[in-house]
């Protein structure tokens, strides 16, 4: 638990979009998927997922429908809309660019200036 990283503000939405882009998921499934692909390196408060999911649905990036889960329980499944797919692509590019820049900046040594 202790070596889990706090989420940067604004990254939860991107994580959700990414997780859902790999296939329709219910809320708990989103959480498991993020844990799985991040190697449990990120700390997400479980309840905090839902305001983000509702926000993304409202923005038209996700659509939701009720179904039956693998545990044979009723659950609401989320999948990407076309708009969501586009947004994921754009945000991924942005993120990569910023991450690259940040990495360069932060690895700069004194003698390189």
């Amino acid at each position: 638990m202790t070596d889990q990283a706090q989420l940067l503000p604004g990254t939860l939405d991107l994580l959700i979009l990414k997780a859902v882009s790999l296939g329709p998921l219910h809320g708990y499934g989103v959480l498991l998927r993020i844990g799985q692909i991040s190697g449990s390196a990120l700390l997400i408060e479980q309840g905090a997922l839902y305001p983000a999911l509702f926000r993304l649905v409202k923005q038209g990036l996700l659509k939701a429908s009720w179904g039956i889960s693998e545990n044979n329980r009723r659950a609401k499944f989320y999948e990407l809309t076309a708009l969501g797919r586009k947004r994921l692509r754009v945000e991924t590019e942005d993120w990569n660019r910023i991450a690259a820049v940040m990495a360069t900046v932060l690895s700069t040594q004194a003698e390189e200036i």
């Binding site: 219910h26 809320g27 708990y28 479980q46 839902y50 889960s69 545990n71 329980r73 659950a75």
Partner: peptide, 16 residues
């Protein structure tokens, strides 16, 4: 009701 059901479903899944 929908919201309650969804959140409760999450907790049930976790409990499972």
């Amino acid at each position: 009701g929908e919201m309650d059901e969804e959140l409760r479903s999450h907790i049930e899944h976790r409990a499972d």
